[in-house]
Amino acid sequence: MSLIDTLAGLPLISPFVEFGFMRRALAGCLALSLGATPIGVFLMLRRMSLAGDAISHAILPGAAVGYLIAGLSLSAMTLGGLVAGIAVAVLAGGVARNSVIKEDTSLATFYLISLSAGVLIISMRGSNVDLLHVLFGSVLALDDAALFLLASFASMSIVAIAVGLRLIVLECSDPEHLARISRLSPLAHYGFMVLVVLNLIGGFHALGTLMAVGIMILPSAAARFWVCNIVPLLLTAVVIAFGGALIGLLLSYYVNLPAGPAIVLTLGGLYVLSMALGPLGPLVNRLRPRWHFER
């Protein structure tokens, strides 16, 4: 019996050995875990989790305009989403800084306008299937071009984080200090926002506009209950993201669930589990005896 035959007999592996669409889905999730999740960690640490959610919705009208022009074309929807996502990220921050409207309200207004405009535009031309595709993604239908796109975004994010880790850490932990000591502060701010939008677009293709931010924020928040230093935090979040995606895909295969929600819900489960068991979670923190006489 060959190794492939042996692996094909294991229930945890056999779906990926037998079916190409499962392998593609797994590869897409791996790319998202490596690229989008570390960006999600910084998004969470900058207290911008909800901002990420709002920007992910802002991608929709741009992708919808791309859809209106070229149908379900990867490049047209990506380009439209990129323009709309960056525009809303800049506009929402600008309105909050220059008016009486606070940032949460500003993001909420753009989120509502974007989501309704996107749904309206797609409904004007497409079918309900197309609408479901953009709202909930199609992780089981990733083609070569989509996989290449996800892998490209992941590679860009990994390189950017590896090269600019010190810059991103200071931008997220003490942006005012960074602005005082370096002229790279605007690069850090806007470069980070571009990475956020790119990864949200990657997540949009796989998980749809409503759940793209799930693979960014849920593993990050779960990892926060386990570690308290930035590099281990990034690595833990990546492991949780990929583990959750793997379990979610298997659940979707064996229990016949929609794949996107199964992945995000599994990540949600891992978050709850981490909250209950993680050494920095509220439960363990409360039950652990207090340390005395420690410097």
Binding site: L45, R166, L170, C172, S173, P175, H177, L184, V227, L233
Partner: peptide, 24 residues
Amino acid sequence: TLDVSFPIVIYDFVAMGLWAQFGA
């Protein structure tokens, strides 16, 4: 102006003082 909830240890925080010599 530091966000003290940010997961960074003393060593890495202090090391940021070398920015002028080592940059980003």
